[in-house]
Structures are given as C-alpha cells and as structure tokens.
Amino acid sequence: MNLIELIYPQNRIVSIVGTAKNAGKTVTLNEIIAEADAKGVKLGLISTGRDGERRDVLTNTEKPPIYVRKGTIVTTVEGVLTDASKNNYAAMEILSVTSYTTPLGRVVLCRAASDGYVEISGPPSSALIKHMCDNMLDFGAQLVLVDGSLDRRASAAPFVSDGTIIATGASLARSMDLVIDKTLHIVRTYSVPKLEEGYIRDIAGDIFENNKTALIDSHGNVKYIETQTTLQCGELISENLREDTAYVVLSGSATTDSIKTMLLNRKSDFKIVVKDPTRIFISAADYLSLQKLGMELRVLEGINIIAITINPYSPEGYYFDSQEFLNRIRSVIPNIPAFDVIQGGI
C-alpha cells in the first residue's frame, strides 16, 4: 500500500508532524510528493517552520531538498524567489503576497511554472496556516501538505488539517524501546477519545467558542470560571468543584499540575474536556499517575492519524534494525499503518 492511497482523496489538508528533529519528516514529505505526482494529484505545500535552510543548523546534517513538479502550489518567501543563484529552483508564478514576514522576507503564495526545487515556508500562527491552506485549495490544489515543525504541533490540530502523518525515528531517543514508548505516548495523546454526549458537545463547543473555562454539572448547567491562563487555573477550578460537577471544560491547555490539583480536590467523578489533542501537555509518566488518580480526558475534536513513518537512522551516528523497528511499531500500534520511508520496508 502507498501512503498516497491512505491520504487522497479522503483528505484535503494533511499535516506531517515529526516527533523529533531528523525523524524523517522531509523524507516522508518527498515520498508523498513523488507518489502524488505519479497519481496526478495537484499539490499545495506549506510549512509551519520558518526554516528554509538546506542545512539543519543544529546537527549540521543535510536536509533533503524538496523537488516539485510544474503546477504545484507552494508557500515560500520573497527572499528565495529573488535569489538568482538558485538556478535549479522551480520558476514561480506569483499568486499572492501576504503581509506575514520572516527573516527572508514576506510569505508568498506561488505556482511552480517549471519543475525544480523549492523552499517551503509559512505564516506564524495555525489560524493563518489554515487560511493559507484554504487559499491554496482555491488556487487549484487538490491536496495540501502541511510540513509541521517540531515546536508547532498545532498544525495537526483538527481545525487546521483533516489528518496527520506522524514521522518518528531513531533521533527521538538512543534506544529503540524509548523511541517506541515516546511514539506510543504521542499516538495515545492524539487518540484521546472524543466527548460523546451530544448535548454536552454543543455546550462545550460554545464554551470553546468563547475561549472560556467552565464547569458543567449533571443537569447541564454551566458555571464559567474567570481564569487568565490555564497554567494557574487548577486552584480556581478546584474552588468551584461541587458534588454534581460532571465536566470541566478547559479552553487552554491541559497540564499535569492543573489536572492534578483538580483531581485531588474533586467531590465527584468528572470528565476533563479540551478542544483537541494538541492542547494536551502531559508526559507519559504523568499521564499514568493522573489516570490512577481518576483522570478521564476527552477532546471535542480528535486527530485523524493517517499513518506513521519511521526513520531508523539518527544523524548522531546510530541506527536501528529497520525491519525490527517497523515490526515493533506495528505491533504496539496495530491500528495505524506504519511505513519505513527510507528503506521501503515490507
């Protein structure tokens, strides 16, 4: 099975998120680009990182460049377009110039007028990325790929992309066990169950709409809590917990500290609801202990994980046995297809 078969036409905007630097995100991207080309799917490309560098500054490993076919819609920056030294870069037709700036100039939407290399860029916030993804679809892209940088997991948020591909690899940790554990944790976090109760979903949706934090009791009554940030809100929520509190709706992030405080002060069993899994910031170890304390976490919108790609190589010089790595990932995460995009793998 090809990656593209899993992606298209089921999804229109797909993000690719790496679990670590050099986890094989760009290789994955190139693979999808090549497969999309073979299938004749017109692509749009955008990145959440501001990097356009061919060399990874941190580890000094060469980043694989991105080669596109004529007609691909690309989000790039002004500085790259006007750099005459890049003669093997694709010629570009300019579609629109945005007001978002990067160190290399403004973010520009282009259509490749010939085959060639490109440097992908994008605006700084996920709302703007979503907006530009829609623009690319309007300009004729059939599938938009969002190259999500490590610190910008938000591109996986369901309001940005329809589905996500997780790129993980040896660079995440020294031992295969650790890499698998950490990857599994990310997958678990992204797979936190959706809030099911229909009318509570409507109420929670309104609370998120207003960007508020609130409690819902067993009769569906809402009590808003004025909090500045979710970081300090554990105590404030705790003070308001009652015997009939059924849901705690958090508009910001779910963090270990705030949830722990709530659970220690609880007077009833309640579910904690966040907007989507990218709002959850709990480490694997904390997650287990919070579960023991009785944490029931729910999301309003879940993330559709399309596939996991693995890269058995780390630029630090060590690598895993590709087949073993792939087999183990597949056995611990059986319901999501996994690929070794570096080796092909069976």
Binding site: E31, A34, A38, G344
Partner: peptide, 12 residues
C-alpha cells in the same frame, strides 16, 4: 526488484 519512485532501492 522493485525500485522506489525516487529511483532508489535499499537492500538489507
């Protein structure tokens, strides 16, 4: 053999 779209093939 089966060669990838990129023109590469990796063998263990």
């Amino acid at each position: 053999v089966s060669i990838r779209i990129t023109g590469e093939i990796t063998v263990s």
